[in-house]
């Protein structure tokens, strides 16, 4: 059940970033989050690079979910 919740959240967050509902997140989509999230352009770029494991310039839901999963396992959520 925890896994399902995690997948649901990852999906929800993916939708926030995938503004045009393309099915992937491009670098410019990430930069549009600047202003919505308290992160600098530089930090958003770094997030994108970290999540984009294969470095093809597009973030798929799978890559996004993997990153989110790593975050959940590496960080305690209060």
């Amino acid at each position: 059940q925890g896994q399902q919740t995690m997948l649901g959240k990852a999906n929800e967050f993916f939708q926030i970033c995938d503004i045009e509902d393309k099915g992937f997140i491009a670098r410019c989509d990430m930069q549009r989050l600047h202003g919505e999230l308290p992160l600098s352009q530089e930090e958003l770029e770094k997030v994108f690079d970290t999540l984009d494991a294969d470095g093809n310039g597009f973030l798929t839901l799978e890559e996004f979910t993997t990153g989110f999963s790593q975050f959940l396992h590496g960080e305690e959520i209060p």
């Binding site: 967050f13 919505e36 930090e43 958003l44 770094k46 690079d49 970290t50 989110f68 975050f71 960080e75």
Partner: peptide, 29 residues
């Protein structure tokens, strides 16, 4: 290691990002 400063590592930035998304979802009415 100068690249391992707290908060500037990939993990730190990623944590920041997801925490922001979490609070965005739960913090707004």
């Amino acid at each position: 290691d100068p690249n391992m400063k707290a908060g500037t590592t990939s993990e730190g930035v990623l944590a920041n990002f997801f925490n922001s998304l979490l609070s965005k979802k739960t913090g707004s009415p």
